[in-house]
């Protein structure tokens, strides 16, 4: 397949799942989080650049910025780490841990925050708007 040959199914995919450009990689803080505003939605972006063997899409994570425990938009200001190998952010007010991959809360099954697929393309951070 050549670079500009677009099959109908690819065209379809790009319509239903657009990738939205959010910010530059330089706006991210290695090993930590920042918040961004996308279409009125507050999103926490986390950046783990030093992990070896991970593809670019695995190094940046996008979660809802609202912490379900406090209702405050503070998720981006939590500490990153891992619990039994699962990459997590600890929400800064009440310290619940949320999986960066799935948004699952490790302490309380009731709480699940939205996650968006995220990637870095040409120095730009993009999330898939689903």
């Amino acid at each position: 397949m050549t670079a500009n040959a677009q099959t109908p199914s690819q065209a379809h995919a790009s319509i239903t799942s657009p990738w939205v450009q959010v910010c530059k990689v330089n706006d991210l803080v290695p090993g930590s989080g920042v918040a961004a505003l996308v279409l009125g939605q507050q999103i926490a972006l986390f950046y783990l650049p030093d992990e070896q063997g991970l593809s670019a899409s695995k190094r940046v994570y996008a979660l809802a910025n609202q912490d379900p425990a406090s209702g405050a938009n503070v998720m981006a200001r939590g500490i990153l780490g891992d619990i039994r190998g699962e990459a997590v952010v600890a929400a800064p007010l009440y310290k619940h841990h949320f999986s960066l991959e799935t948004g699952r809360c490790l302490e309380d099954d009731h709480w699940q925050v939205t996650v968006w697929p995220a990637r870095i393309v040409d120095g730009k951070v993009e999330i898939e708007w689903v």
């Binding site: 939590g78 780490g81 190998g85 600890a90 841990h97």
Partner: peptide, 9 residues
């Protein structure tokens, strides 16, 4: 591992 909100601070 990567650390956590206990050991990092």
């Amino acid at each position: 591992g990567l650390g956590c909100d206990i050991c990092k601070p």
